[in-house]
Simulated scan of single mutants.
Amino acid sequence: MTKWIVPACYLALAVAPAAAADVRLDSYRNPQNENFRIFNHMYLDGVRGGMMAYNAWLTHHGGQPSFCMPGNLALTTEQTEEIMLKSADKRGAKGDMLVASLLLWGMQDTFPCEKPASQ
């Protein structure tokens, strides 16, 4: 029964309407005012937390994690932002690129997982 709960939650969140569902690179780099800048940082913190939680869930259930952070490391908002922006620069990302995708790729670049010996 619990195998379908997490996918069902993701599906429910994906189809639910939201006013600020995604943050794009251009609006992240150029916020309209201080409130938008604060929102962008809160959004990035939420994305990081979600990725770390999902990564832990994957590992706990025998899956291959997307990235392998050291267990004693706690990323600050500034470090998370730096990882995301370096990822954007590395990929030559345009302004409409999703910040969440850039962060995931940046986490994979910054904290790669060792390949199993059989590969």
Rank of each mutant, 00 (worst) to 15 (best):
M1K: 11
M1I: 13
V6Y: 10
V6T: 13
P7K: 06
P7C: 09
A8I: 14
L11E: 03
L13C: 12
A14P: 01
A14F: 08
A16K: 09
P17H: 08
P17A: 15
A18C: 12
A18N: 12
A19D: 12
A21P: 02
A21T: 12
D22L: 11
R29I: 04
N33Q: 06
E34Q: 07
N35W: 05
I38L: 05
I38V: 14
I38S: 06
I38A: 05
F39P: 00
N40P: 02
M42R: 13
Y43Q: 09
L44Q: 00
V47F: 07
R48W: 13
G50Y: 10
M51H: 07
A53Q: 10
W57T: 06
L58N: 08
L58A: 07
L58V: 08
H60Y: 01
H60Q: 04
H60D: 05
H61R: 15
H61T: 15
G62H: 01
Q64K: 09
Q64L: 10
M69N: 00
M69H: 02
P70D: 15
A74T: 04
L75C: 02
T77Y: 00
T77F: 00
E81I: 06
E81W: 11
I83G: 01
I83N: 05
M84T: 15
S87M: 05
S87N: 05
A88W: 05
D89P: 00
R91A: 13
G92S: 09
A93F: 09
G95N: 13
G95Q: 14
L98P: 03
L98W: 09
V99P: 05
V99R: 06
A100H: 04
S101M: 10
L102I: 05
W105G: 02
G106Q: 10
M107G: 04
T110A: 09
T110L: 07
F111N: 00
P112K: 04
C113Y: 06
C113D: 02
E114H: 01
P116M: 07
P116T: 14
A117K: 08
S118P: 01
Q119S: 12
